[in-house]
Design a protein around this nucleic acid. Structure first.
Ligand SMILES: NC(=O)c1ccc[n+]([C@@H]2O[C@H](COP(=O)([O-])OP(=O)(O)OC[C@H]3O[C@@H](n4cnc5c(N)ncnc54)[C@H](O)[C@@H]3O)[C@@H](O)[C@H]2O)c1
Ligand SMILES: NC(=O)c1ccc[n+]([C@@H]2O[C@H](COP(=O)([O-])OP(=O)(O)OC[C@H]3O[C@@H](n4cnc5c(N)ncnc54)[C@H](O)[C@@H]3O)[C@@H](O)[C@H]2O)c1
Lengths: 206, 206
DNA sequence: TATATCTTGTGAAATCATTCACAAGCTCGC
DNA sequence: GCGAGCTTGTGAATGATTTCACAAGATATA
């Protein structure tokens, strides 16, 4: 299969959201131009993106909302529920934990780990925070497929090494460090300071 | 001035972080190859990025850490403190609010707004949460330059319209919606569901 | 059935970003 | 002061992504 660019995947995920909105609004069909407008891109871009995976539209009409939604969900792999664990039940970790939208979109956070004895044992929306030492075993036993890393920067690489070792192949990292992962492991970084610095540049770099 | 790509700005912000680390480690000089290795890119990429703004290195030696750090800070506009406000003092908002790193990197969150009367008046680390209605006036009066939007998706566009109207020209948005802003206003989206969907694709789409 | 009107899917062209490759500059050791 | 050894800065080459442009399929109407 050909290589799909990161930005194409992002757009696909956006189209999914727009299709959901269109479905909620009761629309039966939608055109590439319509999707483009909602996403701030062009109709050619939308069609190219979709053409990477097949021909889903009808000439003269557009795309059937429900059908395209189903297709994109399948392409993205969100036509199922993923088992996600959270490592680091601190401030940002607990905000993420209680975020209902993840569940709705197919990501269930079914385990949480922390090294702080004061936090271990506490209940977070039905899930008990477990000790750091139990992590490796539980990740395997519970068949966790993705991990959200929300520990301090200094601890992040060590956590990731263990998580990868436990067979997890997808990681969402909030710590402001460049993590090393073996090939075959998907890693995304959410780096908020970097985002603010980008805004700073935009205001400065006139 | 020529157009600087978004990815170049991201890398620049990363170099800044690596230079900080190098400075903390007591290094005097650093080569493009060294920066590249830390950032997972190539030395040619690093040199091209820097060459967009000038010639900062010495052939045969590399870059002086302190000097390059100063230059990049100036380029990014983080050689000063930005006044930031937070709108939406909910779960993610309060996590962000108490994040010390922003302050250290030049972003001071000096105001917070919420529409929930139960939250208005409460103290968040020395800053009082203000009522939504006071927002427009206070943004102007306090000279706020950036706003972090952490309100529910349905409320986000209306908030952004008001914020832009109050003269703010940089917005960091956490709500999962595509916001419309006039040209000249910088907008960055942090869309965590999108990130997880990207991971889902990586695990699925072979 | 013919015609007018849409909108897709896709090669080709254009634009944008990264990598290559190397001349030229600087340092160090002798 | 000279040669060896690095490392920068940058055109040129390559690679990737986006945009253009249009033939062809689908629908609706008469
Ligand atoms: N709070 C924010 O708004 C924010 C913003 C951007 C980035 N971040 C990053 O997210 C990460 C977490 O930030 P936070 O503000 O939630 O910090 P926090 O201190 O509130 O939470 C970190 C948690 O990780 C736990 N922990 C530490 N080492 C661990 C280990 N080895 N295994 C398991 N758990 C461990 C701690 O006990 C703590 O509960 C940091 O890397 C931070 O830089 C946070
Ligand atoms: N919690 C998370 O981990 C998480 C993750 C990803 C995205 N988000 C997004 O971030 C946003 C906030 O999420 P949250 O979990 O913190 O929700 P929350 O309900 O805890 O907080 C939202 C806050 O915004 C306030 N608010 C609502 N309308 C307002 C208005 N017009 N002006 C000012 N304040 C207003 C509410 O009173 C509330 O305090 C949402 O858009 C959500 O989708 C949250």
């Amino acid at each position: 299969m050909k290589k799909i660019s990161d930005s194409a995947v992002r757009r696909l995920a956006l189209y999914q959201r727009f299709l959901q909105e269109a479905a909620d609004a009761g629309l039966d069909t939608i055109s590439s131009g319509d999707l483009a407008e909602r996403g701030g891109t062009t109709s050619a871009q939308v069609r190219k993106d979709l053409s990477l995976f097949g021909s889903f539209g009808k000439r003269g009409l557009g795309y059937e909302v429900q059908e395209l939604l189903r297709e994109i969900r399948e392409i993205l792999g969100v036509d199922r529920t993923w088992k996600v664990a959270l490592v680091g039940a601190g401030k940002i970790g607990s905000a993420l934990f209680s975020y209902r939208d993840f569940q709705k979109r197919g990501f269930r956070i079914s385990a949480a780990f922390d090294s702080d004895p004061a936090k271990v044992g506490s209940d977070m929306g039905g899930v008990t925070v477990r000790a750091d030492e139990e992590m490796d075993r539980r990740l395997r036993d519970e068949g966790i497929e993705m991990v959200i890393v929300a520990v301090p920067a200094e601890a992040a690489q060590a956590v990731v090494d263990r998580v990868v070792n436990a067979g997890v192949r997808a990681i969402l990292n909030f710590a402001p460090v460049r993590l090393r992962v073996p090939r075959g492991v998907a890693l995304r970084n959410v780096d908020l300071t970097l985002e603010l610095e980008g805004l700073s540049f935009a205001l400065t770099g006139r």
